[in-house]
Computed example of a mutant assay.
Amino acid sequence: MLRVEGLGVRYGALVALQDVSWQVSAGEILGIIGPNGAGKSSCYDAATHLAMRSGRVWLEGEEVTAVPAHGLAARGLKRAFQQNAFFAGLSVRDNMVAVLQRDAGSGLLASLLAPWREAQARAALEAEAATLLEEFGVPHAMHDLRPGNIPYGSQRMLSIALAWGRGARVLMLDEPAAGLGGADMARLATLLRSLRDRGAALVVIEHHMDLIMQLADRIVVLEQGRMLASGTPREIQADARVLEAYLGRAA
């Protein structure tokens, strides 16, 4: 579904990423792990054309190396960022409506000439937004609140829902479990499995080792901007280089 080959990123004299290659298939979760500063976020930025980079990118077998970030999103390659990003002045529901409106909105002339049709479309969007939010673990009681007024765990779910929109072929998540624990972590795991079961390809950067080892079908390990290892969770846990470079230090 998504394949990157030879990705490289430089910030001046600093080499943040060098010759990194991986791929992820439909219905698969690929985990990307590594110590702080290993190049994980640079890898995401490179894959989604949010950084100047070398290398090549393919989406569903078509080369998209030159396609800009917004063009990749339109083709189904979407991502949620490490920090939550919302329209703070809008309700939770209206944040979701704003995402859906991009694909279903009508023009100014149509709104002026057929306001009843615009009202019907708005009602349909609100109903669709409410359904999506509940599917992503944001309960109806929170829909009229502003994002800053709902619990942090629900904010994380909302950020994933906004990235997903009406669906993604590939969804890239940067530390979705950051700041979560207990029931919120369990809800996140259930959500990610459900998205995988829908046939989406997920690429997940994560520092919570227990979570990523449970969820991921395969894992890529980065260190100092280079690929250190790749394999199944069991293979990664048994790799002496990984234990020394990351897992051992974290333990």
Rank of each mutant, 00 (worst) to 15 (best):
V221T: 03
G39A: 00
D19K: 03
G105F: 12
G71R: 09
H70V: 09
A229S: 07
V57L: 11
R187T: 00
S54R: 12
L195R: 12
T65C: 09
A141W: 05
G55A: 05
G225A: 00
V24A: 12
Q237H: 07
R166H: 14
G137S: 03
I150H: 05
A141S: 10
A80Y: 13
V221R: 03
V15K: 03
Q101I: 05
G12H: 09
L192N: 05
V97A: 11
G107W: 10
L30Q: 09
S25E: 15
G165Y: 12
G105Y: 09
F87C: 13
Q82K: 01
N95S: 03
S54L: 07
S106W: 13
A119E: 15
A46G: 06
R122K: 14
L90T: 07
R187N: 04
W116Q: 15
I150T: 04
A200C: 14
R234D: 15
L192P: 02
R169Y: 06
S54Q: 13
A114K: 14
I160W: 05
R234E: 14
G89Q: 14
F87S: 11
R156L: 01
P176L: 02
E28Q: 11
A74F: 12
L2A: 11
Y44M: 15
E28Y: 04
H207N: 00
L162T: 04
R3H: 10
Q237L: 10
A177V: 00
L162F: 03
E28S: 07
